[in-house]
Simulated assay, not measured.
Amino acid sequence: MLIGMAFPSSEKISELIAHILDSHHLDEESIKVNRAGAKSAVIIAVDADDRPDLDKLEVVSGDISDALDAAEANGEVNFGAGYTLELSTPGVDTPLTATRHWRRNRGRKVAVTVADRTSFYRIGALNDAETSAILITREGKKLQVVEHELASEAKAVVEIEFANVPADEQALAELTYDEAITWREENK
């Protein structure tokens, strides 16, 4: 162990593993580096449109571990007494903050909070520019379609559902953005 090396920041870890994530077609969702006692923890969350399974995460974890070990061996970083690598996908309680989060959760129920008021919707299609999403809500027995600007100040989190998705909501969620807008106009 070389004494002068810096303990790696989240940014340095991101730099070291970017090519690995790219080669596996994964997006970095978050990196946390916790320096603690005998072993530090490197906690990385990744995701992809095709939802990585455990086998893929195992392969990627091995590749990342090799890269971090090589960076330490060549003097780029210093983990001190060692590190534990945790690789996972984001939990369902992770806020929808990027366009890809909305796209990947199409058909799921979401809680959208604006100015301390929370409403529940089902996520539909994104527009071609990926700046707006269709949200489906139910007022009594009547379905409604609204447009949600992704750049808004609203906070959104996927809701866990235990019941089957109502068929009419699922059908609307599967429509394209333009088809959903047309449906809304025809069902006023």
Rank of each mutant, 00 (worst) to 15 (best):
V92F: 10
E139S: 07
R104N: 14
K155I: 03
T137S: 14
V112F: 05
L54I: 13
L68T: 02
F120S: 11
N78R: 10
A129T: 13
A125M: 10
L135I: 15
R138I: 10
P95E: 07
Y83I: 07
H148L: 09
R106P: 07
N74R: 14
V114N: 11
S61L: 09
T84F: 05
D47G: 04
S132Y: 00
T137Q: 02
E139C: 03
P90I: 05
V114F: 08
F79N: 08
G62A: 12
D93V: 09
L96A: 10
A70W: 04
V110I: 14
D50M: 08
D66T: 01
A129W: 04
V77I: 14
D69M: 10
I64V: 09
I64T: 03
A151Y: 02
A129N: 14
I123D: 08
L96C: 09
D50L: 11
H101P: 04
A151E: 09
A71D: 01
S61M: 11
L150G: 08
I136R: 01
L96G: 04
I134S: 04
Q144D: 11
T97F: 04
A73Y: 07
S152G: 09
T99Q: 15
N78S: 15
K109V: 09
E76I: 07
I136C: 01
V77D: 13
L57Y: 09
R108H: 09
E159T: 12
A71Y: 07
T97Y: 01
Q144P: 01
E139Y: 01
A73W: 01
D49L: 13
A81K: 15
E86N: 08
K142H: 12
L87S: 00
K155D: 07
V60C: 12
V110E: 06
A48P: 05
D49T: 08
T94S: 13
E76F: 01
A111I: 03
F120C: 08
S65E: 07
V77A: 13
L68I: 03
F79R: 06
A115Y: 03
D49C: 04
F79S: 06
A98V: 03
N127H: 05
A133S: 13
V112P: 03
D49K: 14
E130D: 12
E58R: 08
G140H: 00
V158N: 11
G124D: 01
R122H: 11
R104D: 13
A48C: 04
A67K: 05
G62M: 11
N127P: 06
R100G: 06
K142E: 14
K141M: 03
G82Q: 02
G124I: 03
G91W: 02
E86F: 07
R138L: 14
L87A: 03
A115V: 03
T94M: 12
D47N: 11
E58S: 13
L126P: 00
L126D: 01
D128W: 00
S65C: 13
R51F: 12
F79G: 10
D69R: 14
N78P: 08
D49H: 05
L57V: 10
R138D: 06
